[in-house]
C-alpha cells in the first residue's frame, strides 16, 4: 500500500483555479475482511477435499443417476409440472382469498378466514395422503348435485334424482392432478396471507385517487392496487415457489411415483447407493432453485417499474465486495 503524497491534497484557496483535485486518501483498513477470507477459504477447501477425495461418493454414479430417463421424466412431471401447476393454482387462489379477506362483504371475509384456518393447519404430507384415499368416499363416482335434495324428497314420499353430473373420484384425486390440486389448495392458504399483506402495503391515497376518477372498486383493485401490491407479493412468492419445488418430494404420499426424488430413491435402493442418489437429488434441486431465483429477479424488476427498484442479488453484493478488496489492495 502506498502512502499518499501530500502534494495531491487540495491546497488552501487561491491555488490554480480553486477547483480541488480528486481525493486520494488511504482507505480504512478492514482486517475483519481478511480474517473472514482466510476462514472461509479453509472451510471451502475442507468441503472440496471431501467431495473430491472421498471414494465413497461415487461421482460417476451420481451423474448417471441424474440423467436416467425415469428420473428425468419424474423431474419434468412431478417436480417441475407439479411445482408450476400447484403454484399457479395457489397464486390465483391466494390473490382471490386475499381480496375476499379485505372485502366489504362479511360472508366473503369469513369464507376466506375459514379457508386459511383449515388448509394452513394440515401438513402437506397428511393432506396428500388424505387425497389419495378420498376416492373411498365415492366408489361409484363423485356425484355433483343439490345437497340433501334426495333426503328431502324422501320425506315427502317422492323420488328425485338430485345429481347433475358424475365425476370419477379416483381420476380427480389420484395421480399428478390430485397432487397439484392438494399442493395448490394448501399453497392458496399461504398465498392469501402474502396477497393480503401486499394489498395493505399500497397507500390509501391510491384507492382514493382511483375512486375520485370514477373507477369502480374492482377496476381500482385490478388496475391500480394489485399491480403495486405485486412488488411486495413477488419476493415471498419466489420463496413459496422454491419451497413448493422441495415439497413436490411429498407427492409420494398420494402416491405419485413420476417424481424426481422418488425415482432417484428407487435407483438408490436397487443399487445400494443411498448417498450418491442424495447428492444427485441435491444437485437437481440446486439447479432448479437457481432457475427459479432468476425468474424471481426478472419479475421483481418487472413490477418494480417506477419505484427505482433495487433487486438485491448476492452476485451484486459479491461484486461490490471484490471491488472494495481490489481498491484496498492497491
Amino acid at each position: 500500500m502506498s502512502s499518499t503524497p501530500a502534494s495531491t491534497l487540495p491546497g488552501p484557496a487561491g491555488e490554480g483555479d480553486g477547483r480541488p483535485g480528486p481525493i486520494h486518501a488511504v482507505p480504512v483498513r478492514r482486517p475483519a475482511v481478511w480474517v473472514s477470507v482466510v476462514i472461509t477459504t479453509i472451510v471451502v477447501l475442507m468441503v472440496a477435499d471431501v467431495l473430491v477425495t472421498n471414494k465413497n461418493i461415487h461421482w460417476p454414479f451420481v451423474f448417471q443417476a441424474m440423467i436416467q430417463s425415469p428420473v428425468i421424466r419424474g423431474l419434468l412431471l412431478g417436480t417441475l409440472l407439479g411445482t408450476v401447476g400447484s403454484m399457479a393454482l395457489g397464486v390465483v387462489l391466494g390473490i382471490t382469498l386475499g381480496v375476499m379477506r379485505l372485502s366489504d362483504n362479511w360472508v366473503l371475509r369469513w369464507v376466506s378466514w375459514v379457508y386459511v384456518w383449515f388448509f394452513r393447519a394440515i401438513p402437506r404430507y397428511v393432506l396428500l395422503s388424505t387425497m389419495g384415499v378420498l376416492g373411498y368416499l365415492w366408489p361409484k363416482g363423485l356425484e355433483v348435485g343439490v345437497p340433501f335434495l334426495h333426503q328431502v324428497a324422501g320425506w315427502f314420499g317422492g323420488e328425485l334424482d338430485p345429481y347433475i353430473t358424475t365425476v370419477n373420484a379416483n381420476h380427480l384425486f389420484v395421480g399428478l392432478l390430485g397432487g397439484i390440486l392438494g399442493l395448490g389448495l394448501s399453497e392458496g392458504a399461504y398465498m392469501a396471507e402474502i396477497a393480503r399483506a401486499g394489498i395493505l402495503s399500497v397507500d390509501q391515497g391510491q384507492h382514493e385517487a382511483a375512486h375520485a376518477l370514477g373507477m369502480s372498486k374492482s377496476t381500482t383493485m385490478r388496475r391500480i392496487v394489485l399491480p403495486q401490491a405485486m412488488r411486495v407479493i413477488v419476493p415471498p412468492t419466489g420463496n413459496e415457489a422454491v419451497g413448493m419445488l422441495k415439497d413436490t418430494s411429498l407427492l409420494v404420499a398420494l402416491p405419485v411415483t413420476a417424481e424426481m426424488f422418488y425415482q432417484l430413491s428407487a435407483i438408490g435402493n436397487r443399487e445400494f447407493e443411498p448417498f450418491a442418489i442424495s447428492v444427485a437429488a441435491i444437485l437437481w434441486y440446486l439447479i432448479l432453485g437457481s432457475v427459479f431465483m432468476a425468474v424471481q429477479a426478472w419479475l421483481e424488476r418487472r413490477y418494480g417499474r417506477g419505484f427505482g427498484s433495487r433487486t438485491a442479488t448476492e452476485w451484486g453484493a459479491a461484486a461490490r465486495v471484490l471491488g472494495r478488496l481490489n481498491a484496498g489492495a492497491r
Partner: peptide, 15 residues
C-alpha cells in the same frame, strides 16, 4: 366521474 380531484400528496399512480 363528473368531479375531478387534486390531492395534497398528488397520489399519482407510481407504476
Amino acid at each position: 366521474r363528473e368531479i375531478g380531484m387534486v390531492f395534497q400528496r398528488f397520489n399519482l399512480f407510481p407504476h
